[in-house]
Design a protein around this nucleic acid. Sequence first.
DNA 1: CTTGCCGTAGACAGTTCTGTCTGGTAGCGT
DNA 2: ACGCTACCAGACAGAACTGTCTACGGCAAG
Lengths: 211, 211
Amino acid sequence: MTPPAATAPNAAELRTVRTPAGQAKDRILDTAFRLFYAQGLRAAGIDTIIAESGVAKATFYKYFPAKDDLILAYLERVDGVWTGQLHAAAEAAGPDPSDQLVGLFDALSTACRRDGYRGCAFINAAAESASGTRVHERTVAHKQHILAWIRDLADKAGVQDPDRLARSLTLVLDGGLASGVLDADPAAAAAARATAAQLVAAALAPSPAPK
Amino acid sequence: MTPPAATAPNAAELRTVRTPAGQAKDRILDTAFRLFYAQGLRAAGIDTIIAESGVAKATFYKYFPAKDDLILAYLERVDGVWTGQLHAAAEAAGPDPSDQLVGLFDALSTACRRDGYRGCAFINAAAESASGTRVHERTVAHKQHILAWIRDLADKAGVQDPDRLARSLTLVLDGGLASGVLDADPAAAAAARATAAQLVAAALAPSPAPK
DNA sequence: CTTGCCGTAGACAGTTCTGTCTGGTAGCGT
DNA sequence: ACGCTACCAGACAGAACTGTCTACGGCAAG
């Protein structure tokens, strides 16, 4: 009966406890989302993520064969969340595309007021990943999606040069996000919104040839 | 004569080679500058820096008791270099402060055309350091210096709201720098300059109350 | 009941990283 | 000639990290 294993803890009172469902993966992703963003991709170790998820190591590696796979899944989730907030903020500004172009900057204000705000997860991830890696490529793709979406809004707003306006606005947005990793100053977000409003207004005006 | 040490390599043909001067520290800093920027603070290991500097480990730890000390020295050097390039670009634009406010963006264009460009060393460093650490504080201080300098230029240019213009310009500048870690697109730098020119022009104009 | 899947628990290997320590060498001023 | 200083070379310790492996428990479907 008693196993001869000297190292094995007597399995009697062994709390293997629970196994809710196929939700171990979700717990891992939740923890990764939190730790990767708060500490950075490299600073957050696999062991810590496993421990805080309350998951067995074998389970972890079943779902994410390598750390990079988890990082990619994390970025995927961030993409969904952030894009959603951006769209929501834009739509909250009303049906007019030119209003939406300004309104989307409210997502920045909201984000930087959140506790533990540490700037843009994608910019931070790019800073930690070598170019050419899957992680880095993923961040580039994200930024391109955002740029395309803003360009689309600018197009609908009927400005003369949608590309130019979209470029300017993403610069301001990225600037606001990047400064967030330094200090989560709400004034920067407000300034970004004001600057965006100015740029959109100028793009809509008859424009006396700004140069 | 022959040392009894079994492990010791016979010191006969030992090339301890050179000891130029007190320049070991410089070589370390040069290597750190290169590797920290190219790979990131965490990805660049002490051992690699030591090996590529051609320096003994003891020498290294004599000058930099901990890795953080080297990182701080690295940031100090980056600050000097980047601030210098910014000032030079501004001055190259002529004596008029309003021209300098636009001209400083030429430093961004130049930087992103450089091989191995990977965005702003400070933003990247901030992404890898926890807030509250010396490294993080140093990056914040850098950005504040830049902001103060631009504000000063805006003041001299005689715009109505120097704070507001300086905020906008740093947002655009940071945006250009942040996007540099994703892809070193010269178009982004050009767009940043154009946006800056537009913002400066608008700030100087009689301004029909932009809202 | 048995079989297979999903899960826990944790030992283990192999690498890498930071930081310490010993020992030896070359030049320089006195 | 002597000692001082700055340097090179590399072994070593201790920790942390990623990833593999064995062993076991419970649940549901056939």
